[in-house]
């Protein structure tokens, strides 16, 4: 699980950024008629963004443990200084 999981996660992060880069390049090229220059530039930018994503995922803004083992928080909600009434959320993101 872990080896495959890590590889898959890194793949997804990399590919997602590449998709954005290539998509943006194609759209810009179509708009401005500059085929294939924006595609080339944005492919590399997307690749860089992908590497950045992978770096961030690996060096952990919580992502590292996210795919590894779910780490349930140890603190009970009751131990908080403030309570968490479920129904106070007035707006949605």
């Amino acid at each position: 699980m872990s080896g495959f999981g890590v590889a898959f996660r890194i793949g997804v992060e990399l590919v997602a950024a590449l998709v954005v880069g290539v998509g943006a390049g194609l759209l810009l090229d179509r708009w401005l008629g500059t085929t294939p220059w924006f595609l080339i530039v944005f492919f590399f930018l997307g690749a860089a963004a992908g590497v950045l994503n992978v770096y961030r995922a690996a060096s952990g803004i919580g992502l590292a443990e996210a795919e590894g083992a779910p780490a349930p928080s140890d603190g009970e909600p009751e131990e908080q200084d403030d309570d968490w009434p479920g129904g106070t959320g007035s707006d949605r993101p």
């Binding site: 009751e78 309570d83 968490w84 009434p85 479920g86």
Partner: peptide
């Protein structure tokens, strides 16, 4: 789902959790 949980279910759960905490 959101409306059901937000309006009915979550207040119930948080209420019982609070009550238990108070009881404890």
């Amino acid at each position: 789902l959101y409306v059901i949980l937000w309006r009915f279910v979550l207040p119930r759960i948080s209420h019982i959790l609070e009550e238990r905490q108070d009881r404890i």
